[in-house]
Write a protein that binds this DNA or RNA. Structure first.
Length: 483
DNA sequence: TGGGGTTAT
DNA sequence: ATAACCC
């Protein structure tokens, strides 16, 4: 199968200099083993055609904690260790430890079914995410000590771009150490390692850093997890799950097609979610090979050029998306689901609970939210996961009071939320809600810089440039005057 | 299906 | 404001 042709100019990294450096120090001065060459000065690297003399090759690690919530619970209460343990939210076992998995408990299993399968199952309530969230950020911070470029994915996964760190270690390597270089952990597909291949060498060093990361997580936080090392995020993520629990795997480029072809359905590809998988199915696409060989033009017509091109690249194992440092969270939200909420007073008291927790969190963070949002889910037999929301700016006099302890900031914010509520729900008519959620977002750093001063214009948080570097167009919020 | 998150449109 | 994606 020929991969989609590429300009190859996505990213240029200087690997060739590293190759020359390493090979110059080589014992017998062997010629090395560059990848197969394409006509026209192109080189075949990691499933991508890149111009000769450049390399887009990165070293990415995906770190994935083992049954994270269950691990946190076992650290909180060591008596739970060794017992089958499930973490419960409402009537679901959202995750469980490996003892429970051996006995047939699955993630997101109904509590009834889980207890039936495994009567000895110990359940702890995990609806309050506070301790999980705190531990999650400790993991991210630990990884950031290795390299600052860390991207969070949920609470239990992180990507780290190790390219620079690997480069530095290779520069420190003595020539006699090169021939003794070994992999840490598994090599996917048991592939042969070629120490004359600079790409292999870099990935091996990546595997050693991954092992150090896992060691540090265990020694400093008591957590175990898996790691996958590969040349991009997609492949790193896919390979991290190959040996499970508490093991790591490196993918060498020659085995990337084996890895992606090992997926039995396109839905297993990260980036192809429920909706896209359904649409692909309607086109007769179910395997990775189906997607690779499907007409790009028709796919673009069906899914739009953006999604079509992105997922078809994914099907070849190509993913040029950068590891984007997550930094502090963009939003804080708390939600509660329930069987039924059908009165305004009931809603108000639930909203007050959610807001109170949020104010504690936002106070600890130090930054100030400038937008507040209320989200609801209405009861309906069919359209299940659809939510509706209303948001508005937080009045500046309320923002100012946010950090100041004894000042009542609850009352004005609850008032705002109830206005948003009545804007969404006609309280004069019967209603049936199954979820309420409050979100504080549009977080800005403390406004210490005074308007009109140099500092004001130099403070990034006060400018209109978002973290992605793109200009952010402000969506019109509902304003208080609109009510 | 829970209780979160993100980015794109 | 919603829709898609991720865990």
């Amino acid at each position: 199968v020929e991969p989609a042709e590429e300009a190859g100019g996505d990213e240029e990294e200087d690997a060739v200099q590293a190759m020359e450096r390493v090979e110059a120090g080589e014992t017998g001065g062997s010629p090395g083993a560059p990848g197969p060459e394409e006509p026209g000065g192109l080189t075949w690297v990691h499933g991508q055609v890149v111009p000769e003399g450049s390399s887009s090759s990165r070293v990415i690690v995906h770190v994935d904690l083992d049954c994270f919530y269950a691990q946190v619970e076992m650290i909180s209460n060591p008596e739970l260790k060794g017992k089958p343990l499930g973490v419960q939210q409402k009537y679901l076992v959202v995750t469980c430890n490996y003892e429970a998995r051996k006995l047939g408990v699955k993630k997101l299993m109904n509590v009834r079914d889980a207890k039936e399968k495994c009567p000895q199952l110990v359940l702890v309530n995990g609806e309050d995410l506070t301790r999980y969230r705190e531990m999650s950020y400790k993991v991210t911070e630990l990884l950031e000590e290795f390299s600052p470029v860390v991207e969070r994915l949920g609470f239990d996964e992180n990507f780290v771009d190790l390219t620079e760190m690997v480069e530095k270690r290779l520069q420190q390597l003595q020539s006699d150490e090169l021939s003794a270089l070994t992999v840490s952990g598994h090599v996917y597909n048991n592939q042969y390692i070629n120490l004359h291949d600079i790409v292999h060498i870099r990935l091996l060093v990546g595997s050693q850093i991954a092992a150090e990361m896992r060691e540090a997580m265990y020694n400093q936080l008591g957590l175990t997890g898996c790691a996958g090392v590969a040349s991009n995020k997609l492949l790193a993520k896919l390979v991290s799950g190959v040996f499970k629990p508490n093991q790591q795997t490196v993918l060498l480029p020659e085995s990337s097609q084996v890895l992606i072809q090992s997926l039995s359905h396109v839905k297993e590809m990260p980036g192809i979610g429920y909706k896209t998988a359904k649409r692909l199915e309607a086109l007769g696409i179910s395997s990775v090979l189906d997607l690779q060989t499907f007409s790009p033009k028709i796919l673009e017509k069906e899914l739009g050029i953006s999604v079509a091109q992105r997922i078809q690249k994914l099907s070849f194992g190509e993913d040029n998306s950068p590891v984007t440092p997550s930094g502090p969270p963009q939003s804080f939200s708390e939600e509660d689901s329930f069987k039924k909420c059908s009165s305004e007073v009931e809603a108000k008291s639930k909203i007050e609970e959610l807001l109170a927790s949020l104010l504690n969190r936002v106070c600890q963070d130090g930054r100030k939210p400038h937008t507040i949002r209320l989200i609801i889910r209405r009861y309906s037999s069919e359209n299940h996961c659809s939510r509706e929301s209303r948001q508005c700016p937080i009045p500046s006099h309320v923002i100012q009071k946010l950090g100041t302890g004894n000042c009542d900031v609850m009352t004005p914010m609850v008032d705002i939320l109830m206005k948003l509520f009545r804007n969404m729900v006609n309280v004069k008519m019967p209603f049936h809600l199954t979820l309420l959620s409050v979100c504080l977002c549009n977080l800005k750093a403390l406004n210490t810089a005074k308007k009109g001063t140099i500092d004001y214009y130099l403070t990034p948080s006060l400018s209109t440039t978002s973290r992605s570097g793109k200009r952010s167009f402000k969506m019109k919020d509902t304003h208080m005057e609109d009510f």
